[in-house]
Design a protein around this nucleic acid. Structure first.
Lengths: 218, 218
DNA sequence: TTAAACAAAAATATCGAAATTTTTGTGAAT
DNA sequence: ATTCACAAAAATTTCGATATTTTTGTTTAA
């Protein structure tokens, strides 16, 4: 249940839940699209009831919309909701960063530097070829890893869980609203600013960098 | 742990979901207790599958624990998780209060004053008779209404939803850890402080009052 | 032409039985 | 006495059939 990366087709539910979640936040489904358990079951080789359970769970995080007797839908693109998600993510992530800067040690610095190194590498490659689906997926993974690592030493498993929730919600709405890949040239500079501020243990600068980065991301 | 049979089938899920949620956060179930859909179905007059769906949904908010092939449980009492919930609730509620103070008008002030008036009334009665189950339920309701109203003008439906989630999680863990009713004499003074700071449009004082209030609540 | 009433079809929700997994209980071997 | 293997029981999960609700399409009356 906790694994973000799918581990094969060992456990029925788990794979389907996480695979479907990943597809949702990667804009594999058009906003407003109806999600029928009866149809989706064919893609995953399970029953409609199982899909229904999974869709209910995803609806808790706002990743799918549910209406009684009307079934499930991919949430409509909404600039307002996207903005609310941005603000909430800033709130959570700035707090997580502050705590990590206070509590994190050399090991954390090293992990953050490593995550940023990978991210920067992928971003530079992606900058050159923004049409590559493979690079886009890689960028999504690296972006997540960097931001997750940034808050990883906050000391609160609850905050980490809530951060993942809002990160995914934000990403989904951002992609739905912008209709682009979500990648901007300035990302590279902004990520570097955040990294440097974190390594300098400068809470103010780090939070400012984060807020700026996320606001511009839309 | 009384068995309440609901024969009303009208709104299906909805009633069961919210009734069960209410019972969970009111400490009607002992921490660690196994929640078997097959048993619970008798109390609600529905099928086990339906209960399973509902339990899955509640597990998203951390109100019940799920383990693959092991079923559902009431989360164990955990001081650590309770502390994490407190901190997270402070983060959310202070932000909501700040925004409400900035954006709220006279109507909001009136609603907050009204909510506090009810709360103060019930708290004074409850202070005299802390064993009354009826007063306790009423206090829970009024406490929620006051804190909810405080952030109600924040302008973000997302923040409001997230606040309810963390309020419920905090309340559940607080009751599980303290094993008391969660009511303290100082509540009365603290709630008044929060009210006055909000009406004075003093963000600093309001947030300080909130943090103090919630920290002491455990 | 529009609107209301109704019937047919499609979609959704509910349910209990069957399959799978975990837990419990029993007895043999070390 | 302890451990291990294995069978029995209990619990969990999966599944598709049935019931209910919504949507669609058609007819009729104003």
């Amino acid at each position: 249940m906790e694994a973000r990366v799918l581990d094969k087709q060992a456990d029925g539910d788990v794979d389907i839940y996480w695979d479907f979640r990943r597809r949702l936040i990667s804009a594999h489904f058009e906003p407003g699209l109806k999600l029928k358990p009866e149809e989706l079951r064919l893609q995953y080789g399970c029953s409609a009831s199982q899909l229904r359970e999974i869709l209910f769970r995803l609806s808790c995080d706002g990743l799918v919309e549910f209406q009684d007797n009307k079934g499930f839908k991919v949430p409509l693109a909404s600039l307002e909701l996207c903005n609310e998600a941005v603000e909430h993510r800033i709130l959570i992530e700035c707090e997580g960063a502050r705590l990590s800067i206070e509590k994190g040690g050399l090991e954390w610095e090293a992990q953050l530097a490593a995550a940023h190194h990978k991210l920067a590498h992928v971003e530079n490659k992606f900058k050159a070829d923004q049409n590559s689906k493979e690079l886009f997926d890689m960028w999504c993974e690296c972006e997540w890893e960097f931001h997750e690592t940034l808050i990883s030493r906050c000391g609160s498993s609850l905050l980490i869980r809530k951060h993942r929730d809002i990160y995914d919600l934000h990403r989904m709405h951002m992609l739905a609203v912008s209709e682009g890949s979500g990648f901007r040239q300035d990302n590279i500079k902004e990520h570097l600013n955040i990294l440097n501020a974190a390594l300098d243990r400068d809470v103010e600068a780090c939070q400012k960098g984060l807020a700026n980065h996320l606001h511009k991301s839309g």
